[in-house]
Computed example of a mutant assay.
Amino acid sequence: MTILHISNKSNFTKEEALKLFQPYTEEKDFHYFKSLSKAKDFLTNNLIEKEKHLDFIISDWKFNNDNSKTILNWIRNSLENYSSSNFQLKSIPFLLVEDRENQSANISDGFDAVIENFPNNFVNLKHNITSSIKKWRTSLADDLELIGLDPKTKTNYSIHRKSFISYYKLKVLSKTFVEKKSNSLNYIWSDFDYNNLVNSNELFEKKMKETLRKPTKYLEKEFHEFLCDNPTFVKGENFNKLLYEKHLYINNTRRYNEPDFINKPYEYSIRYPEIFEVKRQSQRLFWKNKDQLLSKAKKGFEQVVRYKKYMESKNEANEFYIKKYLGKVYNEYEYTLLMGSSEEKRYNENLVEELKNDFNFSEVSLVTYEDLLNKHIRLCDRLNEFNIF
């Protein structure tokens, strides 16, 4: 899920906030601001101008001489759409963090929920997030029924849908969604096979244990095949197309780069295409008792950096192949290296970041196999918890 959190707590860091919201989001999907003006700029630039998606907003109340009611009113009175023009901006769930010193009884009007004793009462936080998202999705389901569309069946519209004029009855769906004759919602929470996703978690964990016990020559390829068969491990909920071993030819020669995966985002996602490279789970990062990256671990980072230089080269010959696979050249890209164990990464977290900076690997995200599994488990838990469709 993509979240906007607006905090007035000076000593409350993004890392601390992310720990609270980790059941609902991932680091790159968590947007954190300390001022209302910056948060409004974020909403304007991304949701209104670029029609990106956001699942909910949660904000403190008081900010110097202003309060979050100003953004709430701006949103609730908006006529704009967001998320590829599928939804009305005024419908977006907006949660308020309780402020006993400055809030009166009528302040909560217009907010979808009030979070008591934040951040200490996680049960209350979870309850209000769940109820707010379910309320929004229930309203969306009602809208779909009103216009005669089942997003899962993807069938033709009924006769009354073609002549639909009761736009004022729509609570979440936009008039644009109805008029462009959309016949499906391409969000993972509107069309997924929960049992298959849950079963894939068990298969991945089993495969991890087996390959650590009996590593094979073709270990990386085995995980390639698994990820091709179970693409949500890489795609998550923000990416819609997983490209496998595409040849990125260099300067129109026969030489090419071949990243394991290229992950293409949905148009409504606030994300960029991701280069995703797979290395062994058993690959250690450091020499024993030495503060140095092992040569094979370093080569893994260097390989991703080579892909980075290609993707950002501004070379027309290289851009031809980027357009061929992604449809266009993007302003930014994301880079992920799947390698190693969480235990070694966790005990050397500061050293990992220090060495990444020393070798100019800072833009490469190091994800371990346990990290990837836990991320997918969280995704499955969210789909189960918020399921309406």
Rank of each mutant, 00 (worst) to 15 (best):
K28Q: 15
T2I: 15
I92L: 07
K154G: 01
N117G: 00
L125S: 01
L294T: 14
Y24D: 04
S295V: 09
N357Q: 15
Y157V: 01
K308N: 14
F122S: 14
F42A: 09
H127M: 15
I133G: 06
L173A: 04
S91A: 12
N318W: 00
Y347P: 00
H31G: 04
L203G: 11
K9F: 02
N257H: 12
L203K: 11
I57K: 11
F33P: 01
E385I: 06
L355S: 05
S37Q: 14
Q281M: 12
L72D: 02
E302S: 07
W287G: 14
N240V: 08
H160L: 07
R271I: 02
F122V: 15
L293C: 03
I71S: 05
L43M: 14
L242F: 02
N360M: 12
I92D: 00
V172T: 01
V198F: 13
N8A: 09
Q292P: 03
K9D: 13
R161F: 08
A105L: 05
N315I: 13
V97Y: 05
L173W: 09
N120L: 15
K162G: 14
I322W: 00
G110H: 06
N348H: 08
D29A: 14
L372T: 11
K324Y: 10
V305G: 02
E354I: 10
H127D: 14
N331V: 01
T153G: 00
